Simulated assay, not measured.
Amino acid sequence: MFSRIVLAASAALMLTGGAAFAQDVIQIRKAGFEDYKKAMGEIKDAVGKGDLAAVGPVADRIDAFAEKIPSLFPPGSDKGRTAAKEVIWANFPDFTAKAQDTQNAAKALKVAAASGDKAATGKAFGAMADTCKACHQRYRSE
Score class of each variant (00 low, 15 high):
Ala59Ile: 04
Lys118Arg: 12
Asn91Thr: 15
Asp60Phe: 00
His136Asp: 05
Ala59Ser: 10
Ala20Phe: 02
Leu15Ser: 14
Cys132Gly: 08
Val55Gln: 09
Ala129Cys: 00
Arg29Thr: 06
Arg138Ile: 11
Gln103Pro: 04
Lys68Val: 01
Cys135Phe: 06
Arg61Val: 08
Phe21Ile: 11
Gly80Cys: 09
Glu142Tyr: 01
Phe125Gln: 04
Leu13Gly: 15
Arg140Pro: 01
Gln100Tyr: 05
Ser77Trp: 00
Gln27Val: 12
Tyr139Val: 09
Glu42Asn: 14
Asp78Arg: 05
Glu34Ala: 14
Ala119Pro: 01
Ala129Gln: 10
Asp130Val: 09
Phe125Glu: 03
Asp63Phe: 12
Met14Ile: 11
Ala54Met: 05
Val25Asp: 00
Ile69Gly: 14
Ala114Phe: 00
Glu142Ser: 15
Val87Asp: 09
Ala11Ile: 14
Arg61His: 07
Glu42Lys: 14
Pro74Asn: 15
Ala54His: 01
Ala84Leu: 02
Arg81Cys: 08
Ala119His: 02
Ala12Lys: 02
Phe2Thr: 15
Ile69Val: 15
Ala64Leu: 09
Trp89Pro: 06
Leu52Gly: 10
Pro74Leu: 13
Ile5Phe: 02
Val6Pro: 04
Leu52Glu: 08
Met128Arg: 05
Ser141Trp: 00
Gln27Trp: 00
Ala46Asn: 05
Gly18Glu: 02
Phe33Glu: 07
Phe65Trp: 10
Phe2Ser: 15
Lys118Asp: 11
Asp117Thr: 12
Lys98Thr: 08
Ile5Tyr: 02
Ala22Ile: 03
Gly56Gln: 12
Leu72Val: 03
Met1Gln: 11
Ala113Asp: 04
Ala120Glu: 06
Asp117Ile: 11
Arg140Ser: 08
Pro74Ala: 15
Ala12Asn: 02
Met14Thr: 06
Ala39Ile: 08
Asp94Gly: 12
Asp130Asn: 14
Gly48Gln: 08
Glu142Val: 11
